[in-house]
Design a protein around this nucleic acid. Structure first.
Ligand SMILES: [Mn+2]
Ligand SMILES: [Mn+2]
Ligand SMILES: [Zn+2]
Ligand SMILES: [Zn+2]
Lengths: 143, 143
DNA sequence: CTATAAATAGAAATCATTTCTATTTACATT
DNA sequence: AATGTAAATAGAAATGATTTCTATTTATAG
């Protein structure tokens, strides 16, 4: 937690109860959370936070490299703690239960240089999304 | 065109003026089009088509493998003709002008088996999005 | 030609996200 | 500790892409 508050200070963000509460939530729940879900969880802990504030805080934390965002195929936004900054964050999404897992492995350099040559473009970022059945759903399916 | 109408028949879709008009549009414009843009272009050609119809037709054509969809980071949907069915359709999106180009090259098998082992999951699909500057925007930037 | 299921238009609803503005708060500075 | 100020926030309202609903029209099989 202290580590993250320090990052916030670096970025000249004030340390507010809402920002701390959102951070704590992500530290406790080690998974992807959506804005409304976050509002509800904070509400249960008796901290009412407006949705616009939540959206803003999530964006700020993402900008500071604390959270990573995933645009789910349901077209909703989800965020989770960024365990390792400065590495690629790719995702495996279960097509059955929507669970999201991070994928670190990625051999991208070959594709990247292929594209720069073929399209004469400058590659900046890339993101890989893998869809399939997570271990749980895979098991259920075969029952 | 005949080729695509045959596919529609295969899928038991009726050949209607709207569906033909949408297909013709994609055959003429060799690029990604959004639903509203499509409505406007058809309107100029004096064929009024409701947006719900356009959304439905696009989904149907995608289901039949005629169109491919991209969920743009603007969170809007775009479609373009699928030149080669049964191959991966990955995308390069210009972060400046939003131009979309298809990327066929993809060495995915290594990542796929890594994930299946590591997560004990079953991989079904994958999509790769590369962002950067297209050749035109790259040139402008250096001017 | 007719019957019928599919396709369509248009209005309305949905709903995640964003914008706006008045009020409150963190915290740097006295 | 008190104060001033920019930043943060709530809440209401707007936005806007997409979807739903339903009455009407149409493609096409027989
Ligand atoms: Mn990567
Ligand atoms: Mn691929
Ligand atoms: Zn699952
Ligand atoms: Zn460009």
């Amino acid at each position: 937690m202290e580590k993250y508050l320090a990052v916030l200070k670096e970025y000249h963000f004030k340390i507010t109860p809402r920002r701390k509460a959102v951070l704590e939530l992500f530290l406790r729940q080690k998974r992807y959370l959506g804005p409304y879900e976050i509002k509800q969880m904070l509400g249960k802990a008796s901290l009412e936070v407006g949705l616009p504030s939540i959206y803003r805080i999530l964006e700020e934390l993402e900008g500071a490299g604390i959270l990573i965002k995933i645009e789910h195929s349901s077209r909703r936004l989800y965020y989770s703690l960024c365990r390792k900054p400065h590495i690629d964050h790719h995702h495996f999404v279960c097509s059955k239960c929507n669970r999201v897992e991070e994928v670190e492995f990625c051999n991208f350099s070959e594709i990247s240089s292929f594209i720069e040559e073929k399209l004469n473009a400058k590659v900046q970022h890339h993101s890989l999304r893998i869809e399939g059945l997570c271990s749980q759903c895979r098991r259920k399916k075969s029952l």
